[in-house]
Design a protein around this nucleic acid. Sequence first.
RNA 1: GCGCCCGUAGCUCAGCGGAUAGAGCAGGGGACUUCUAAUCCCAAGGCCGCAGGUUCGAAUCCUGCCGGGCGCGCCA
Length: 575
Amino acid sequence: MTVPSLASSLSDSVTASAARLGMADLAPQLRRSAHADFQADGVLAAARTLRRNPRQVAAEVVAGLPDDGLVASAVVAGPGFVNLDLTDRALLAQLIRRLGDDRLGVGTPETGVTTVIDYSQPNIAKEMHVGHLRSTIIGDALVRILEHLGGTVVRRNHIGDWGTQFGMLIQYQVEHPEPAPDDTGTMGRLATLYRLARAEFDTDSAFADRARRRVVALQAGDAGTVAAWRNIVAESTRYFTDVYDRLGVRLTDADTVGESAYNAALPAIADELERRGVAVTSDGALCVFFDDLRGPDGEPSPLIVRKRDGGFGYAATDLAALRQRVAELHADRLLYVVDARQARHFRMVFDTARRAGWLPATVPAVHVAFGTVLGPDGRPFKTRAGDTVRLVDLLTEAVDRAREVVAAKNPGLTGAALDERAWQVGIGAVKYADLATNRTRDYLYDPQRMLALAGNTGVYLQYAHARVRSILARADGGHTTVDVTATLEPAERALILDLDAFADTLAEVVAGHEPHRLCGYLYRLAQTFTTFYEHSPVLRATGPQRANRLALCHLTGDTLRTGLHLLGIPTPDHL
RNA sequence: GCGCCCGUAGCUCAGCGGAUAGAGCAGGGGACUUCUAAUCCCAAGGCCGCAGGUUCGAAUCCUGCCGGGCGCGCCA
């Protein structure tokens, strides 16, 4: 069941009042205010188009507000703001409505919408690093939110399991036989192999040629080469699965459809683009050109579908994947959670797909771009050795640091229970730190900040949630009946108003594919709850006040738990 | 050269046209016989990169500069 927010009900009231005055298309522009519960600023804009005195128009709108028990006071302020305070009864009635729905009244607006979302995308035989963390965490949060809103979500982990680097890896293995892949679930052996093979590839052109021939053998299906490839992919996949488990991300083998899966479809992609006149041959390569995309020489720069040597690059693969997602997976929306550096690539891919007729105008395709991870020097992050930070090392350190703090605060907690709590806190901290900032910004890698356990962090939210649970546990459960005739204190009003904004916030998050807005919302909610916690004792209260405060705790706890769950952050009952 | 993203407190970031620009961290001062002090309170800290423009109103929209990051033909 969808429970309209107080803000939207109020907005409707203002719209209705304005309509009766002949202002049919007034947008109330309702927002929270320091001067009242809400302020409506839209009257100002409307008055201008009417060429009337804004304060006068505002006064008329105020006078025409329906008398439905929602508004306690409506006054005109400043140049023509309408300040609106709600009645305590309306706030408490709204509390009842949200509590009465097991999904907090957010409804299922995504029902019937299929989203195919592409995220994580690690590369075979390469370590996962902080950049993969961003894609994985943002993607996971969007999946959880869309599913919570009733949507059908198809996850696609488009792993890099095909391409030139495999010729390099396999050829190196052939020339430098090593023990068979171990089964320890670490990337160590493959990472070493990659580094050695890359070094030889870059310095020995004869080896590079042999590696390229090996690619041809792989693509032609040579049995021995394919077997070697399968081994490498399997070893990497075990490692990725281990990392996803440690992250608490629900990506499985079923969601993993790598670049190789589209191999057979590539020739048809090229043929069709050529036949339709979308792609043309240039310098021997099959290319799609775009009028407004040019290179340094001023010439149009292409999307290369098929290379001069007849091979296919990732443009062809992405096009094949896109077509399959629309035609066979019936996507109503395509999301790609990928580094912002790929912006031009995706623009070209989407544009090409539109021209080819594979991407109908009704299906939005969005590059959910995130900024580059930068080091302390403001340059793309590399360690002194030239490597990026291994994701597993970051996670290990996060959990280790959390374990120290958890153990210090909970001397009785040991063994598996301690490990569990440390994991919940440490992973929560990392995820929150990653999700809390606007994804489009470049991202400064700062372990001090990511692993912090005080201030605006995941722990703050977990802590607020645990405090709620503690109160509820001591309250002896039971059904609490809200008394709508009670008088609310400021901290209680503020809490209800924040709680009521949950559903609207989720809608914003989906509209902009911006999980950081949910972080910001939950942090404000936790702050508001903490203020309430400091000012309004629950268990020492009596009668209707106690019941109402318990109800507030119930809804706060459920909202924090649901919201954190949607971000993939665990919510232990005790901290 | 062209294009995309970014520029807000010492640091890291919120703020998607509204009233006095907000958090956290760092640094200063306070609060645990009271539902969890992983918390809270107080003080301090700002030419919102610069300059124009639109508007009753601009950190927010537009234009131009300046600075940083990234991208632009056979890697992905």
